[in-house]
């Protein structure tokens, strides 16, 4: 039977906890509540799909390095796909945010879901910004010299030097994607764990409004 030594193991305890919180039917559900019936719900999954495209096109650009796209037609096309993925990503994400706000989707213990989404949005702005700085063209020169004043004024400029291409490229392709992807993972896991917020309803009996 169960060996108490095994039961006490960190590994065992973690596995049981994950199994309890995320049973397979929650991670990969095959039904959802009947009130989930509006086009507004597709913008979440569209944001995710656009994020997949952003990462994929960014990886494609990474293969030949940061300046290849200036001298290759194929490279320029891949750069275009990266740009438009980002435009689609923000397009979908902002509509997703509007929709979730007007559904008050933080209700019922879902505040962490809302907050991780909001922080992902802010992180994405930083990720896109460092991307603009990493283009190695006129745009990145101008944006860097303009942005330095704002970022310096916050004090962050003393360590986050927007004029340092190498530093900005590293933030763009390593640090900020890691944070954005990590936050997105937590966000999606929370959505699966808590489910989609139910509609506003009448006050249930037995509670004080």
């Amino acid at each position: 039977m169960t060996d108490p030594r095994i039961e006490r193991q960190w590994t065992t305890r973690l596995r049981k906890r994950v199994e309890g919180t995320f049973p397979p039917e929650k991670v990969l559900p095959d039904t959802q509540p009947s009130y989930v019936a509006s086009w507004i719900y597709v913008f979440g999954v569209l944001t995710l799909a656009a994020l997949v495209m952003v990462i994929a096109t960014g990886c494609a650009l990474a293969i030949m390095g940061p300046t290849w796209w200036h001298v290759s037609g194929l490279g320029h096309y891949i750069n275009s796909t990266h740009l438009w993925s980002v435009e689609v990503f923000f397009f979908a994400m902002v509509i997703h945010l509007w929709g979730k706000y007007f559904m008050a989707a933080w209700r019922g213990g879902r505040s962490m879901t809302w907050m991780t989404g909001a922080v992902t949005f802010l992180t994405s702005i930083g990720a896109a910004f460092t991307g603009y700085l990493s283009q190695t063209n006129f745009d990145s020169q101008w944006i860097a010299t303009q942005a330095k004043d704002g970022i310096n004024a916050t004090g962050a400029g003393s360590v986050f030097n927007v004029l340092n291409l190498g530093q900005m490229l590293m933030w763009h392709i390593v640090l900020l994607p890691l944070v954005a992807l990590g936050l997105t993972a937590v966000h999606v896991i929370l959505v699966r764990k808590r489910g989609v917020v139910p509609p506003f309803a009448d006050v249930p009996e037995g509670v004080v409004a």
């Binding site: 509006s38 086009w39 597709v42 435009e87």
Partner: peptide, 17 residues
Amino acid sequence: VIVLMVVAFVAALLLPF
């Protein structure tokens, strides 16, 4: 882009699923 976003948002609310 901004106009398209508003249009998409309104359409998502109005169009039957």
